[in-house]
Amino acid sequence: MKFHGLIHQFPREIKLLIIAFICTLSIGFYSGISFVRSTTNANPNGIEQRYLGNEDDENATEMMFKKSEGEIMTTVHSHILSLSAIFFLVAFILSTTSINIKLKLFLMIEPFFSLVFTFGGIYLLWKDIHFMKYVIMASGFLMTATYSVSIFIILKQAISKK
Rank of each mutant, 00 (worst) to 15 (best):
D57Y: 03
C23V: 15
T118V: 14
S68H: 09
M1K: 15
M108T: 08
A20R: 04
L83M: 13
P11A: 06
M64P: 00
I101M: 11
H4T: 07
S160T: 13
K156F: 14
M132C: 08
N54W: 05
Q49M: 09
T40D: 08
N41H: 13
L94K: 02
H77Y: 13
R37P: 01
Y123T: 05
L81Q: 09
L142I: 08
F106P: 03
L115S: 07
N41G: 14
L103V: 10
I153L: 11
T144A: 14
H79R: 06
T146D: 00
T96F: 04
K161A: 15
I19H: 03
V76K: 05
G70K: 13
S34W: 15
L107S: 01
F152K: 02
P44M: 09
S82M: 13
I109W: 08
L81V: 14
P111G: 03
I159K: 07
S34D: 14
H8V: 06
F65G: 02
K66I: 05
M63Y: 07
G140E: 03
I7Y: 05
I122T: 13
T39A: 08
F113S: 11
F65Y: 10
I122F: 14
M1V: 14
K127P: 03
A60R: 12
L155P: 03
L83S: 02
W126V: 03
F119Q: 00
K66V: 04
L142P: 00
E71D: 12
S114V: 00
F10R: 01
N100E: 07
P111C: 07
E62P: 01
S98V: 03
E71W: 07
G121Y: 02
L16M: 10
T39K: 11
F106T: 13
